[in-house]
């Protein structure tokens, strides 16, 4: 769990570093970033309602603020926003948002607004990387920081899978099927990327995904 949270945090740091140091967001999908902001905002609605630990609250806060920051850079920063590949980043996000919402309205643990939005965020997160993966495939010579970002972001849910197996074995009554199945799907979506990422890493080459 800790390793998963840390790779998630590092993925965001890597992305912010890339944008800030190179003053460029080329190869980064604004659509994926906006989906992630939607995921964080709908999942962490309970930030001021239920307190679990200082760690949890801080991480929630960091995730919301940092994804807002990245979007701000890509949309408003006068240098960075010029480098956004808008004409390549054309994934129709409505095809991810609406099905996730409808599924959350039907398959959830409790019929309440908070619960449906939380479930929606779980479903949406599992597919939120798709615009980014499509953009990567269209970009020739993906830069290292961008590919590292996607690798770290993909590893995070993979590490959570291990955490869930461990908790399932050690905690009585620990079951969360919605989160598990979504997490499995989320990690499976990265499989192809992981394969090419590790291949290019072994050969010491820049990543380029076959189209």
């Amino acid at each position: 769990r800790e390793a998963g949270d840390m790779t998630h945090l590092f993925s965001i740091i890597v992305l912010l570093l890339k944008i800030n140091a190179t003053k460029s967001c080329s190869g980064v999908s604004l659509k994926t970033q906006e989906l992630y902001l939607l995921v964080f905002v709908t999942r962490y609605l309970d930030l001021f309602q239920s307190y679990i630990s200082l760690y949890n609250s801080c991480m929630k806060f960091i995730f919301i603020v940092s994804s807002g920051c990245i979007i701000g850079y890509m949309r408003k920063h006068k240098v960075v926003s010029q480098t956004y590949d808008a004409e390549q980043d054309t994934f129709r996000v409505a095809f991810l948002v609406w099905p996730s919402f409808l599924l959350a309205a039907v398959i959830n643990q409790k019929l309440s607004v908070m619960e449906i939005l939380w479930t929606f965020s779980i479903y949406l997160e599992s597919v939120a990387i798709l615009p980014q993966l499509v953009l990567l495939q269209r970009t020739k010579n993906v830069d290292n920081l961008t590919s590292n970002y996607v690798f770290l972001l993909g590893s995070y849910r993979g590490l959570y899978l291990l955490n869930w197996i461990y908790r399932c074995l050690t905690e009585e009554g620990y079951r969360q099927w919605i989160v598990w199945i979504s997490g499995l799907l989320q990690t499976a979506i990265y499989c192809d990327f992981f394969y090419y990422y590790l291949k290019s890493w072994r050969k010491n080459e820049r990543l380029s995904l076959p189209s």
């Binding site: 769990r1 949270d5 679990i52 949890n56 991480m59 409790k110 959570y160 955490n163 009554g173």
Partner: peptide
């Protein structure tokens, strides 16, 4: 139905 697992993960 089983009680909901507390949302203690991120």
């Amino acid at each position: 139905t089983a009680p909901a697992t507390p949302k203690d993960e991120l």
